[in-house]
Amino acid sequence: MAVTVTDEPGDVVDPSEVSSPRSWRRAFADLAQGWRQRPLWGYLGWQDIKQRYRRSVLGPLWISISMGVIALGLGILYSALFQISLATFLPHVAVGLLIWNFVSGCILEGSEVFIANEGLIKFLPAPLSLHIYRLVWRQTLFFLHNLVVWVVLMIVFPHPLGLSTLLAIPAFVLLAINGAWVAILAGILATRFRDIPPIIASVTQLVFYLTPIVWSVDILSDNPAARERAQLVELNPVFHFVEIVRQPLLGQEIVGRYWLVTGVITIVGWAAALICLRNYRSRVAYWV
């Protein structure tokens, strides 16, 4: 008579897979079980924000205030340096920072997502993906708070927004999906090799300056001597993710190749993350 055993609560696994912790079924089951626990990681993500601003009068509103102050300072400074209209450049910088904060949050916090949850991983039988979903949800809440800055700027500096603005929704969903696989890869690697987090932090800082957040590609494109160099920015994968969200939010022309590049990166990135999750998921509890 065939016998089945459970690998995780609610998961039935074939006996032939029990002997080997490396299983595609277990990897996909981890992602599925984590997704089914949405009430848990949704609550935990919201509590993370509330705890950070505990006993603060303005509470999470400080998220938007701090981001708005930084965007205003950088916008005024660089618009003067580049001699660009503040009405044009300030929204460019603010929306760029809005997207960058989400990207850098997934990368930096993703590199320590399992290390920071050492106690939960060791003593609570929960899928690893729960911590990934919690991280991405927390960064999404930060993004939504900061979106207030964009609303204010669109009132002060009106842009030609239309139905294309709605493309920002699927663009952000795609961004969040990529944030998840980045957190899985960075989290597992950093748990095994503790030198990885500071390396990732240094590289992320470099990527910020290489990505047109506080500068614009149009500045290089308008300069005949630097026009060819402007094309090199497309070698930066973060650039494409920033643009697919920023273009609809600013009412700019939608460039299809940015969506194509991000789609390819999504497929390749998730393939690498699934391989990593399959091979090393069972070792994370020992590495932390």
Rank of each mutant, 00 (worst) to 15 (best):
T4K: 08
P9E: 10
G10V: 08
D14Y: 06
P15D: 06
S16H: 08
V18M: 12
R22K: 13
R25T: 14
Q37M: 14
R38G: 00
L44T: 10
Q47S: 09
D48C: 00
I49L: 14
K50V: 10
R55I: 07
R55G: 01
S56F: 04
L58R: 00
W62F: 09
S64Q: 01
S66L: 10
V69N: 00
G73F: 15
I76Q: 12
L77S: 11
S79R: 00
S79K: 04
I84K: 14
F89L: 06
P91M: 02
L98F: 10
F102Y: 12
E109R: 13
V113T: 10
F114Q: 02
I115H: 07
A116T: 09
L120I: 09
I121F: 08
K122A: 10
K122H: 02
L124K: 01
L128W: 11
Y133M: 09
W137Q: 12
L147T: 11
V152L: 15
P158E: 05
G162N: 11
T165I: 02
L166T: 02
I169C: 03
A171L: 01
F172N: 05
L175F: 08
N178C: 06
N178A: 00
A180L: 13
A180Q: 15
A183D: 05
A183M: 06
I184Y: 11
I184S: 03
G187D: 00
I188T: 05
A190G: 15
R192F: 11
R194Y: 05
P198S: 07
S202V: 15
S202Y: 10
L206Y: 08
V207Y: 03
V207S: 01
Y209G: 00
Y209Q: 02
T211W: 06
V217Y: 05
I219H: 08
A226T: 12
A226K: 11
Q231F: 08
E234H: 12
E234N: 10
L235C: 01
L235T: 02
N236H: 04
P237M: 04
P237S: 01
V238I: 14
F239L: 09
F241W: 13
R246L: 07
Q247I: 00
G251T: 05
Q252R: 14
E253Y: 07
E253V: 14
R257Q: 08
Y258L: 10
W259A: 01
L260V: 13
V261K: 01
G263F: 07
V264R: 01
V264H: 00
I267A: 15
I267P: 02
A272M: 13
I275F: 12
L277I: 09
S282R: 11
V284F: 09
V284G: 02
W287P: 03
